[in-house]
Amino acid sequence: MSFSVQDIIERTRKISPVDARYLAVGIFTILIMIIPLGAGAFPNTVMIEIGFYSIVTMGLIMFMGFAGQISLGHAALFGCGAYISGILTTQHYLSPWLALFLAACFTGGIAAAVGRVMFRMHGLILAGITLALNLLFFYLVSGLSDLTGGAIGMTNIPPLSLGQYTSQNILFNYYLLWVIAILLLIFSLNLADSRFGRALRSINTYDGGSEEAAQVLGINIMKYKVWVFILSAVYASIAGSLYAHYTRIIEPNTFMIQFSALVVLMAIIGGRSSPWGAFLGAGLIVSIRQLLREFAPMLIVGPTGSYELIAYGIIMVVVLLFLPQGLFPIIKKAILKRRPGFS
């Protein structure tokens, strides 16, 4: 019995797609779990940042990649989670865990209400509406100063705690965040391969689906669009709550359109057809940003941050022009040749 890479790949080919899915998740989980053992505090904070972005991007991928809808307002959903968590814990003294749960429910409810009217419209007009809604959210939290602290934001949000550990502890927060991220990943992967996921793909006009054909087959497209929007919102809200309890300070500027655009960028680069793309995209972009922050000031003079933006733009354009499906399909193909049905 040999354990060469080739051999493992051979075995992977023989197992069923469902097993392969869990095998991949298992390998990924082990990788994530052993990273902190070998690294200092700095890469852990970077990995935590990647985790936040990954969860939001995963939600966006379900909305954008599975269902083919456009959203440029996910920062508002992320902010919704963060602010509701913050308000419930600092002003009503609820447990952070309960606040996280209630925030997710509430954000999902908002998404249901907004989605119900928003999805009467098709295609690109959604881009305009979600952009406007994001701006609306920004003005709302900046304006309601009694509730949200206005432009200054909220401070002293209590951390999540489990026994003696709190999420101020970087390592505890790392594991907490990534366990949640992996659970959500498993949910997304299974969702993609369910009746619900296939229905979403059938209405995905961006990747060759057709709303009319889906309707003819008896798919209630409104129902599916609203539900995927709710799920997407719940993902963003969970990430937002975790973010609020981790940094313990939130301010409106974080939840501006810039964040939404960044999440869209991650979904596109990673590959919008699979939840794995979220981790790939978030990991790549955050790493690039970190590298540029470290090394760019040595090479070129100018305000930091400008190279990041230029790099994001160039990466986005290059990926869209030459790899419209993002990076994940290529990696998948490289790992598993001639094996369809593995998502």
């Binding site: 190279y307 230029i310 990466i315 869209l320």
Partner: peptide, 15 residues
């Protein structure tokens, strides 16, 4: 793609 262009222009302006 136009969103990507927006990023690039923003970056240049910031620079």
């Amino acid at each position: 793609l136009t969103l990507g262009c927006a990023f690039i222009i923003q970056g240049i302006a910031l620079h």
